[in-house]
Amino acid sequence: MKTLPLIIFGLAVLAQWAAPLSQIWTHEQVLAKGTLIKLKCSAPDPYDPLRGRYLAVRPSQSQAAVPAGVELKQHTQVYAVLTTGTDGFATASSLSPTPPASGDYIRVKTGYVYEDKAWIEWPFDRFYVNEKLAPEADKWFAENIRSVQGITAEVRVFNGRAVLEDLSFDGKPFREILKARVK
């Protein structure tokens, strides 16, 4: 058996394990050590051909302030400083090209930048659900479209990384609400 193909195959196998394992490690760290923040959002039900049904999580905040003197470019990674309001919901209060020294922050991507505001792309945009539950989510949204409370995204943040832990409505996990409706 030739050695070179085997070495390359071995390296490929290692890389094929390392790529998902590094993702798992990073996200487990965030889930274990991260701060829990809550964001107001909506979540309709599209479909991913590779990963199945998911709820498209759209935080209601789509722009953030750019502090005076800071110049940001489109399509770049920046840090959104998070501030929690009296209602318990977090918002991105300002954007910075470098990680802030203290407090909670999330790494986001800039969209269109205009004067003192920039559109932001949150690092989470989907919450996967079982394909039995997903159509129920659509019905739920149609019935509750006028609800002032809306859906809450529960997100763990740690060192700029964010993992969407759960979606909730009125304090209850959204998945449980859907499961109860299916039964």
Binding site: L11, H27, L50, F124, F127
Partner: peptide, 28 residues
């Protein structure tokens, strides 16, 4: 495998990024 890990952790990300890593890991 990459798709399932990103599903379990509700990862966002664009499909071209997924395609990029998938094709590189398959090339050897």
């Amino acid at each position: 495998c990459i798709a399932l890990v990103s599903q379990i952790y509700n990862l966002g990300g664009d499909w071209p990024d997924f395609l990029f890593w998938w094709m590189l890991l398959s090339l050897p």
